[in-house]
Simulated scan of single mutants.
Amino acid sequence: MKRIILFLATNLAVVLVMSVVLSLLGVNRYLTANGLNLGMLMTYSLVVGFTGAIISLLMSKQMAKWSTGAHVIDAPSTSTELWLVDTVKRLADRAGIGMPEVAIYEGEPNAFATGAFKDSALVAVSTGLLEGMTRDEVEAVLGHEIAHVSNGDMVTLTLIQGVVNTFVVFLARVVGYVIDKTVLRNNDDRGPGIGYMVTVFVCEIVFGIVASMIVAWFSRYREFRADAGSAKLLGTPQPMVKALARLGGLEPPESMPANFKSFGINGGRSGFAALFSSHPPIEERIAALRSAS
């Protein structure tokens, strides 16, 4: 979940900076000075919308390493590291992708995969995951992350984020122009008035919330696909089912640390908050795996 939040936050920051810079350069005023030029507005929206998403994707590996303090295993120094690298290599070969970088970081049970390209991705696992799960369960989690890479989920997420960003920027300015010219009746040939700027600001917030729901929906969908991908790579869904159950605290062993019992990689929420959750509830993921077996 952290990698998705980081991706979205970086993307949002870049979009905001691009929007401010282009506004200061007079692009907004030029678009609306003599009537809204929809063609140029769409070009402007595409540039702003996709710049943030693409930069976030290209920076994703480095940002993930920085944010988690992940240590890349260049040469395995322990039996656990050797097993981890060998397992990732075996799963990557089965999935038909290049060998990812393998890293370990300190933290609660979790794992992630990121990177702009399938053949140069990063797969990282936490110390909590390695210490609190069996090797079969860890292998299932690794299969889940390898499936993310094989499915090209980060690239697809980038494309979806870029598209929704584009429409947020585009529609906010169209609505702002309509409000400024028809409701507020601003006929100043020098450009848009304060009504345009306020409307655009409000619409970007409202449309941005809707866009976040769309991105979160895709993120939940890709988790189901990655679970199924893990089952396919391992030849059975049972290890992934057990891993999810353990991570969700549904079947914790007696020796599991207290902080492990309440931890779940799903990040699932209920009610209205579920619309913004990057992961579906673990119970739904387990049910999907069992129904497919």
Results as ranks from 00 to 15, higher is better:
residue 211 A to F: 09
residue 270 S to P: 06
residue 278 S to G: 03
residue 267 G to M: 02
residue 271 G to E: 05
residue 253 P to Q: 11
residue 280 P to I: 00
residue 213 M to A: 11
residue 214 I to W: 05
residue 283 E to H: 07
residue 235 G to H: 13
residue 213 M to S: 07
residue 254 E to Y: 10
residue 271 G to C: 08
residue 272 F to N: 06
residue 270 S to F: 13
residue 247 L to C: 02
residue 273 A to I: 01
residue 236 T to G: 03
residue 256 M to S: 15
residue 256 M to D: 15
residue 280 P to Q: 01
residue 254 E to H: 10
residue 220 R to W: 01
residue 264 G to A: 15
residue 258 A to I: 11
residue 261 K to A: 10
residue 278 S to Y: 03
residue 240 M to T: 01
residue 210 V to W: 11
residue 261 K to W: 00
residue 240 M to R: 01
residue 250 L to C: 08
residue 281 P to I: 10
residue 236 T to A: 09
residue 254 E to W: 09
residue 250 L to N: 13
residue 210 V to K: 07
residue 220 R to V: 03
residue 251 E to Q: 10
residue 268 G to M: 04
residue 266 N to D: 15
residue 225 R to K: 15
residue 257 P to N: 10
residue 215 V to K: 07
residue 226 A to K: 02
residue 256 M to V: 11
residue 267 G to Y: 01
residue 237 P to N: 02
residue 268 G to Q: 05
residue 263 F to M: 15
residue 213 M to K: 05
residue 280 P to H: 00
residue 211 A to R: 03
residue 232 K to V: 13
residue 236 T to L: 02
residue 263 F to G: 10
residue 239 P to F: 06
residue 257 P to G: 11
residue 217 W to E: 10
residue 279 H to G: 00
residue 251 E to A: 11
residue 235 G to A: 13
residue 280 P to C: 01
residue 217 W to Q: 12
residue 250 L to E: 14
residue 223 E to D: 09
residue 282 I to A: 13
residue 237 P to T: 03
